[in-house]
């Protein structure tokens, strides 16, 4: 198992405390620890139905035939593994703050993956960078966690990224849960949410920010340089300006929350200096 600055021994200690309770029932995918709405061949009885030619005759309930003189087929709850897609924004803007949003995002992704894998589900890691979606094949089982950590450790945060464009870059099949981890400096999140909803995804949006982004401290005339585009914006720092920024920030978060609510997505704001294990509390 790789241990670097992101995944320290303390991180693994914290993982043990971290438990994710998912309410979803997933339909598709390989057998797993999650109950599926689909009827299958598991041991857990679900219902009866009348035999239709073509049904597996092994599933005919002969006791019922003896009592009712009609052919019934036993239906069992089929157990499927859940499919979780983690969309991680790996643009340059994420490489900011102390600790950086990149480190915090990796830790979140790792913690979430740990719980998912622990629950016999599958994780697909999508690294969004330069308007592309770098998909790392699904990982299942606890053995896969080590591989996932290696993958996460190797991610570099650079370039620009359009969240919607990069998410749409990869076709999504089957139901599942999509978790977006990003600083959400975009005004087209709705397109992303619309797309994922259309693809029958339950959505969780984790908004990663640093404290400096919430409350910047600029008291002189500055050229603000965008870390992704290199664009600059001249501002003269003052209490009034920072007040206006705070107002703009709050409006932005409110807008994001409203958007998530509209598409039944869960919105979570996570500051980089906060304990990632408590994001759901």
């Amino acid at each position: 198992m790789v241990t670097d600055e992101t995944f320290t021994p303390e991180f693994y200690e914290q993982l043990k405390k971290f438990r994710l309770q998912l309410k979803l029932r997933l339909a598709a995918g390989a057998n797993g620890g999650r109950k599926s709405n689909a009827k299958g061949s598991s041991v857990e009885f679900s219902d009866f139905r009348e035999y239709i030619p073509g049904d597996d005759i092994r599933r005919i309930d002969w006791n019922a035939y003896a009592r009712f003189d009609r052919l019934f087929v036993k239906l069992f709850m089929e157990e499927k593994e859940g499919l979780f897609r983690i969309f991680m924004d790996a643009s340059k803007s994420m490489d900011f703050g102390t600790p950086t949003k990149a480190v915090h995002s990796k830790r979140l992704a790792a913690a979430l993956s740990y719980c998912i894998l622990d629950n016999s589900d599958r994780v697909i890691l999508n690294v969004l960078k330069n308007n592309k979606n770098e998909v790392h094949k699904g990982t299942a089982g606890k053995q896969g966690f080590s591989r996932l950590i290696d993958t996460l450790s190797a991610i570099t945060f650079e370039g620009e990224n359009d969240l919607t464009k990069s998410i749409k870059n990869q076709d999504i099949t089957g139901r599942g849960m999509s978790i977006i981890i990003s600083d959400l400096y975009t005004d087209n999140l709705e397109d992303s949410l619309k797309y994922l909803t259309y693809k029958k995804q339950e959505i969780m949006v984790i908004h990663v920010l640093t404290k400096e982004e919430m409350s910047p401290e600029i008291f002189e005339t500055s050229n603000l340089i965008d870390s992704e585009s290199g664009a600059s914006l001249k501002v003269t720092g003052s209490n009034a300006l920072l007040k206006d920024y705070k107002k703009a920030y709050e409006e932005h978060v409110t807008k994001l929350q409203a958007l998530c609510k509209k598409y039944s997505a869960k919105y979570i704001l996570s500051l980089t200096d906060s304990d990632f294990t408590r994001i759901f509390t």
Binding site: S93, K101, D183, E213, L224, D226, S227, E228
Partner: peptide
């Protein structure tokens, strides 16, 4: 003005 890098000027 002094150059100050920020993650994004989106909010500004």
């Amino acid at each position: 003005a002094t150059d100050t890098p920020v993650p994004s000027v989106f909010l500004w």
